[in-house]
Amino acid sequence: MTYELLQPVFVISMALIAIGLYGVMSKKNILKIILSIGIMDTGVNILIVAMGYIPGGTAPIENGNYPVYMDPVPQALVLTAIVIGVSVTALALAVAMGYYRKTGTLELDDEGVMKW
């Protein structure tokens, strides 16, 4: 059996990734870029959780009777990935604050972005 049931989930998570990517590349406002990163992270996390889907499965908490469980590993991975995402977002916000204090704006200037 393959992932046919999950195709809408894949489309949604890929759409989130693409939206995030678009935001990261096109926006100049630091907060918008941070939001875009968050959207991208969410897309990836949805994808990973979906990878552990088993038809008819339940949450992997043992309670005596033995139904079919979901694959627990992706859930554990996503737990880690979420915390990491939070950490990065928090640090990015701190950097944004520092940038704002130094420059008085949250817009990245063209010169700074495109410098090669």
Partner: peptide, 25 residues
């Protein structure tokens, strides 16, 4: 940016939808 992200979207979606990964563990 739009072109790149749409390309990424199309490639990724196509790849994951046609992926033949097993749905059991």
């Amino acid at each position: 940016a739009a072109i790149i992200s749409i390309t990424v979207f199309v490639i990724l979606t196509y790849f994951f939808i046609t992926s033949s990964a097993p749905i059991n563990y």
